[in-house]
Amino acid sequence: MHVAFETLDEHSILLRLADTIDPEVNARVHALATALRAADLPRLRDLVPAYASLLLRFDAPTPGRADDDLRARIETVVNDPEAWPVAFEQGAWHRIPVCYDITHGEDVAAVAEALDLSVEDVVRRHSAAEYRVAMLGFAPGFAYLLGMDPSLAMPRRATPRTRVPAGSIAIGGAQTGIYPRELPGGWQLIGRTPLSMFDPFDDARPCRLAPGDRVQFEPIDPDAFERLQRESGA
């Protein structure tokens, strides 16, 4: 796989693996991220995976020339994909309980109707898949998940909501996502998890999900939602 180097500003290099949203490409992005973290590059401060690219931001200006030592060290890692970790084995596993009842996912019936499926089909297909956190963005802790059953793809709402409840599980195009906090948003809401996805007071791990993590959803009923929500104190 060819990796293109692009200099963004004086501190940053963008590595681009492809120009597509593809679970396999994204798995490679996370494998490369792991390999680069292990390379212990001097003054690397931010390593930002996206669907098909990886942004490296350094504390000091990067000289950026092809003969520069830092650039050479990055190239050594990039050019030796055999040494990257096995892509599909990367990432922590999370089982996320989701209440798909219309009381917790306002759009679930409308989504089922638009897709010509029953609500049960939507729930079954959405909770059967294994997902990967492709990237976080849009807002702190917002996880974009790849791996959704393509039959569930659904355009965003024509008018975004000004307030989407924290923990909402939503479909936006071919992707699914989890709103970590109450936010504005235009995705279709099909359920909600009682787990806290974002805790600003946890300095070590403010977000439950990290890029490259794996996710499965487990359907629960409204009673279980209330109970788990009380237990997690969310």
Partner: peptide, 10 residues
């Protein structure tokens, strides 16, 4: 607050 961009925190 550098170092948290991978979590969507700017």
């Amino acid at each position: 607050r550098p170092g948290w961009a991978h979590l969507g925190i700017g």
